[in-house]
Structures are given as structure tokens and as C-alpha cells.
Computed example of a mutant assay.
Amino acid sequence: MSIKKFDYTVASVLAALNEITRGRVVMDWEEVTAGRNPYVVMKTSNIPGKSVMEIPGLIFGSKDKPVRKIGVGMTLTESMIELASGIGLDLVIVHHPVADAANSGGVPLAGYLPLYNIALMELHEAFHGLHPGVAYLHGHRKLSTDINFCGVPGNILHVGVALDGIRTAGDMIRHLDRFMGREQERKLLEAERRIRGDIQMIETTLSNPNQILSGTPDSPVKHILHFFPHTGFSVHDLERALEMHPETDTIIASISRVREDHPLVQVARQRRLTFIVGNPHSVEILENGVPLAYAIQQILPGLEVFILRERVTASLLSQLGHKEIAEYGREMALGYLVPEGKEAKAGRGKTVTVVN
């Protein structure tokens, strides 16, 4: 039996992304220079030199480059670039915007990616609002989405109603835990703790559990407002949304977190609304990355598509576990980094973590 060969290029994938996003992808650079694409936006905190322009489409590489294996990830890092190299990926598609050095190990992309012959694309705002999956995972059916709420690009607001069978806040939490495989994540962390001899090791997703910050597990849920605090969603935005949707009984904040004393939570308590914090940003690869990967594979059959998921853990420096690297670190610090006479003070009274 012969296996059909598919001849795809970077241009083939770019065209597929444009289909998936209903024409939101930059297909010609003039869309950027002439300001014709509304999904090309600047993101800035007004820190000099740290702004970035989102350009949904091809960021680096030739459109003519042949493509057999691609990876879909969230945020480009040097670890992701190295993994892409190790498994022979031709193209990496990331959700979040990329910037020289910040996303490529401190060096320009043009000096790093050609070493491994990797092309690069990004999507971000151009992908938002295209599917109802994030709402579904959190236990509600999306009725409408505004991806520019109150006129702010990327300030997303979902309005929804609880799914059949989801009657309480506790039902929502259990529904979300089941879909996100939290029990599997707990077992994985337990195994890694045993192997490394570090019983205090912490992992991102498990350190940010789903929580009810206003209300109880028995609080009834029906009419939902769902937003993402890191987009700049403010108290003013929440009050405006509640004016527009006075039937609301439940608020969900996900991807990013708010603390128990946050003003958004205080508004919910004052109005006797249930407030739930859902998934952290570390699992958006499952929420948005997996649907995108399946869509690409359906449009371009025969293309090998990998999910590039990063897992971040933290360990107390004293519990690092690997004797040789701990000794190496101490020797380098005491021999070259800590000024003479400062040895006794180094690290005193501080908790230091190492990220793997």
C-alpha cells in the first residue's frame, strides 16, 4: 500500500491559518505598513524599548520553505526552539507575539532560528473569539464574545449560560478539573518529587488551582460573565458589563488570576455574585493550542503536528536534589560571584527558587 505524499510549504500553512481565522492573518507586508489589518496591534506598558507589535502571520522564514512537521505552542522560548530542533520541526506556530531576544534566549531571532532551519508564525488576537472552547471548559455555553470590550483591543468578554448539568459553582470546578486532567498532573508531580528527592517541588498549574472567591460550592450558577484580568479588564469594565447584563449571577476570571482581596472580587461580594477563578495561563496550550493544531491537521492532512507544552517547576535551592549541579553552583558563586567577606551574608533570610 503506497502512502500519499503531501507537498506543503510555509505558504500552505499560512493560507490554512487565514482560513481558520476567517481572513485575519497578514498575507502581505503592506497590511502592516499601511495599517490595513486591525489585528496588527502594539502592546506596551510604556516601558522604554519594551513594546511589541503583534503581527498575526509569518514572522521569520521563507514562504517557499517545505514543511513536513510543525509545532504549535503558546510562548516562544529558547527551550521551545531547542525542542523544535531536536525533533526536526520545520515550522513553529505560537499564540503569543514574539520579540527579538525576549523570546529567543537573549539573541536576535535571525541569529538563532536559521541554525535549525525553523520558520516562525504567531497569531494571538487574530485567534481570539473563534471558538467557544474556553467557555465550554469552564462549564458554560458562550452566547456572545466581545474581543475589544470598552474599546480596548484584546479586552475579551464572554457572555454565557451554564451547560446542562452545571447547576452550582462546585459543578463548574469539578467539570473544569476533569477536562484539564488535574489528577494526572498531581500524579506526575508526585513522581517527579520522588525521583528528584524534593518533596517540596511546586508546579505552575497545581500551584494555581481553580477557586471560588465569592460564594460557596453550592452557589447556583446560570448567567455567566467570563473575562481575563491580564487584558486590563477593570472594575469599570465589570460594572459596565453588569449594567449590560443585569441577569448575571456568576463571574469567571481565567487565564490570569486575581487574589481574594482584589477590587473585582469585592464588586462581586458587594453584589452577592459568585466569583470563580478558573484555568491559569499555563494550560492555555490545551484551551487554544490543541483546537488550533487539530484545525491545521484537518486542512492539511498528512502534516505532522506536535503540541509544544512547557512545564515549569520550582524548588527551594536547598532541596535542588542533584548533588553535582548544587556543588557546581556553590563553587561558582563562592569562587567568582560573591565578594570576599560577604560569604556569611549571601542568601541569609531569603527563600531562593530554581526554575527548571
Rank of each mutant, 00 (worst) to 15 (best):
T9N: 03
S12V: 08
L14D: 02
E19Q: 12
I20V: 09
W29C: 00
P38M: 04
V40E: 03
V41T: 12
I47C: 00
I55H: 08
D64M: 05
V67Y: 07
G71N: 06
G71L: 07
G73V: 10
L76Y: 06
L83I: 01
L83D: 06
A84V: 06
G88M: 09
S104I: 08
S104D: 10
G106P: 03
G111P: 01
L113R: 09
P114D: 02
Y116W: 13
I118R: 05
G129I: 05
L130C: 08
V134I: 14
K142L: 15
T145G: 01
D146Y: 13
V152W: 09
G154E: 09
H175K: 10
L176Q: 14
M180S: 12
R194K: 15
N208D: 11
S214R: 03
G215T: 08
F228W: 13
T231L: 07
F233N: 03
S234T: 15
S234N: 14
H236V: 07
D237T: 07
R240W: 05
E243L: 11
D249V: 12
V258G: 02
D261V: 01
T274H: 10
N279Q: 15
P280E: 05
P280G: 02
S282T: 13
L292G: 04
A295P: 05
A295G: 02
I299Y: 02
I299S: 00
E304R: 07
I307W: 06
R309C: 01
E310P: 03
T313W: 14
L317Q: 10
E324C: 01
A326V: 05
L334Q: 08
Y336N: 04
